[in-house]
């Protein structure tokens, strides 16, 4: 008998070892290899699938990283999702079998959906974008991001579906755009309220203007993410006015963002 075409030629699939694995490059479309030579990388939790060599993973609340955090991590709301990998060796990163790619920033800035960012070099600084759920990277260095389907690069002026948006670089933050014609009038109002008569599901878009690049993915399926910087319900009643994360979202239920060194996951799990 004969089992169909064998992957990777007659010899079967390619076998990798520490020498043949690429350095800071893709192994295949879904897996990325990072080489560490005593250096450090920021890594989102749970994206490491395997590694050769001696690599340590430490939560970023670790006191040793104080100086590193001061220069390259400015997102306390995401502190519990990130770890620092350091040591010698090669590690493989992947995310739910999504497409993975690395990008180089040269004294630039790029904003990306928080769930899509896998890892970045500490020469970049990570900051929270003012758009909820997005993170901004500023500086020079390499980062690794995942997308559901390949990334498509577009130039503004452009309106995009919020769910297909992966990120944007070098252009001003987007604004919301509502399809006015569809929402106006009695019939339009009825339609958007009840869905009777059909809604296209595309009444709400993000609008980009100015010079820059917009990154889109070819799927509208999103990963669960933390809403960052959303002005919560508390703002209306006068409590915690304008304080990011003080209202809704998974963290908002606790009322306070988790800071490094705080009782984090365990606290939430125990319902403290």
């Amino acid at each position: 008998m004969n089992f169909g075409p064998v992957m990777g030629g007659p010899g079967g699939p390619t076998v990798f070892d520490p020498y043949t694995l690429p350095s800071d490059d893709n192994v295949n479309a879904y897996t990325f290899c990072v080489e560490l030579k005593g250096s450090q990388w920021f890594l989102q939790k749970g994206k490491m699938i395997s590694y050769y060599g001696r690599i340590e993973f430490n939560g970023i609340g670790n006191g040793r990283f104080d100086r590193l955090l001061r220069t390259s991590f400015h997102s306390p709301l995401h502190a519990s999702d990130w770890v620092v990998a350091e040591g010698q060796g090669k590690m493989l990163l992947a995310d739910r079998a999504f497409d993975v790619n690395s990008y180089d920033l040269d004294d630039g800035n790029l904003t990306i959906r928080s769930g899509n960012l896998l890892a970045y070099q500490p020469s970049l600084a990570l900051k929270q974008s003012i758009v909820p759920g997005f993170l901004t990277l500023i500086g020079t260095g390499k980062f690794v991001a995942a997308s559901n389907g390949p990334v498509v690069f577009m130039e503004p002026p452009l309106r995009v579906d919020p769910q297909a948006l992966v990120g944007w670089a070098d252009c001003p933050s987007p604004c919301h755009h509502y399809d006015h014609g569809y929402m106006s009038g009695v019939m339009g109002g009825l339609r958007s309220l009840t869905g009777i008569g059909g809604t296209s599901g595309e009444e709400h878009q993000f609008e980009f203007v100015g010079a820059g690049t917009v990154l889109l993915q070819s799927s509208e399926m999103l990963m669960a993410e933390q809403s960052v910087g959303a002005v919560g319900a508390g703002a209306a009643t006068g409590n915690a006015q304008g304080v990011p994360g003080a209202g809704q979202g998974p963290l908002g239920q606790m009322g306070v963002p988790r800071m490094p060194g705080q009782l984090g996951d365990l606290q939430r799990r125990l319902g403290l």
């Binding site: 699939p13 076998v15 990798f16 070892d17 520490p18 295949n28 749970g46 699938i49 395997s50 590694y51």
Partner: peptide
Amino acid sequence: DGPAVVLRVSAQYPLSVD
């Protein structure tokens, strides 16, 4: 789930896997 990566383990190079 996604194409598998095949990694060789030898005496000098142990491998850690999630």
